[in-house]
Design a protein around this nucleic acid. Sequence first.
DNA 1: CCAGACGTTGTT
DNA 2: GTCTGG
DNA 3: CCAGACGTTGTT
DNA 4: GTCTGG
Length: 258
Amino acid sequence: MCYNVAYLTKRKQKYAEHHGETDADVERLGKQLEAITEKHYNASGFIYPNLLVVTNKRPDDFQMLTWGMVPFFMRDVAHPKELKWNTLNCVGEKMFETKSYKNPAEKRRCLICLDGFYEPHHYKGVSYPFFIRHKNDDPMWVAGLWDDNGHIQTVSLVTVEASPLLGRIHNDKKRMPLILPHEMRRDWLSELESPADKDALRELIQPYDDELLTTYSVPPIRSNKKLGREAAGDTPEALEEYHYDALPEEYYREVIGA
DNA sequence: CCAGACGTTGTT
DNA sequence: GTCTGG
DNA sequence: CCAGACGTTGTT
DNA sequence: GTCTGG
């Protein structure tokens, strides 16, 4: 889906430590995070939550932007829910060519800071939610595009072709968020000054290294009779591994590759 | 030319 | 604001 | 969340 | 009234 995410559910300071270059940076970023009270165990994009981001305009600050990008030219739209089309995700491979994203792709990129994200796995006509995070629980730096139409600052999450592991999990659409390797995250925010810069940026649009990820099935976020389990909602339970008897043990191993 | 779109992939 | 489709 | 739909699907 | 889809 790339429509459900978790952030700030664990030690806030980790985000500051990962992004700050100096001790002073880390301290300042840490203070910014302390001021942020919003966090989500499982937020659906369709409620248009705020996301924790670092933009190219302010690469050394955390900010909260509304999920669902409202293009700058939609001057009379006050909120993404008023848009007539879906801007929660942006297909990374096409971002320079699409009308709504081309401008943000060139000038307004950002990092979305996550603990992890959810993808649906389809088995015998039923959809099972899986959570994906770093094996070592590091924060995830996901590519985003942002915009400002004079009323609201908004963000779209960039997606890319799925890696082998994510393709087995998200087995109908085979897409995943564009997760940036930690050492590449600031490259996503760099200014484009030449065609070569644009090519370099395009090079970042790759599936992530599966070796760094772990994934497991979790309870449904909303009630769903087919899954035979109470909904977890946006609570700590949403992140906890939950085994579905309908999915054979052997099948789990094949999918997850464990 | 001009009206209309502008986007992506979930679930209950 | 800019592209697409009729 | 909230606007919009709310339905079915023949052949020898 | 309740489900679906964005």
